[in-house]
């Protein structure tokens, strides 16, 4: 069974969030990236966009499939990973690191309680 970073929270839709003060960094999990296979395209929100927790905010495409992304928390997008448009494969090679997707100003820290911790997520994907 895989283990997942302890400092992240996870959604059942296979996105993760890392909170640092008021900033939330979000991405997709290694499990999701492995399930998708080679990711070849990302369609990401604009800076300034307002995301709703569990609302659709973008798309990743593998060779074969198109997948919607759902925000693990609400917030306003302050930054989108500029490397992903040229190197979408970062989502496969380093999903918890260089493959981060966006940064948000965290709207409501209480929303984190609706997410899974690393153990909970590991059980979900076991």
């Amino acid at each position: 069974m895989s283990t997942y970073p302890d400092d992240l929270r996870y959604s059942k839709e296979h996105e993760w969030v890392r909170v640092d003060g008021e900033t939330a960094t979000i991405g997709i999990t290694k499990y999701a990236a492995d399930e998708l296979g080679d990711i070849v395209f990302v369609d990401l929100p604009q800076v300034g966009a307002s995301l709703e927790q569990f609302g659709s905010f973008g798309v990743v495409e593998s060779v074969k499939a198109v997948s919607d992304l759902y925000a693990p928390v609400s917030g306003e997008v302050t930054e989108v990973n500029p490397a992903l448009s040229g190197q979408p494969e970062l989502l496969n090679s380093d999903p918890f690191g260089e493959g981060w997707i966006a940064r948000l100003t965290l709207a409501d820290p209480a929303q984190l309680d609706e997410l899974l911790d690393a153990d909970g997520y590991a059980q979900l994907t076991a």
Binding site: H14, E15, V60, S62, K64, A65, V66, S67, D68
Partner: peptide, 13 residues
């Protein structure tokens, strides 16, 4: 995430 794909992108069995 929810995935929509071709037959070969179907969920693993």
């Amino acid at each position: 995430m929810t995935t929509v794909g071709d037959p070969a992108g179907a969920p693993a069995v």
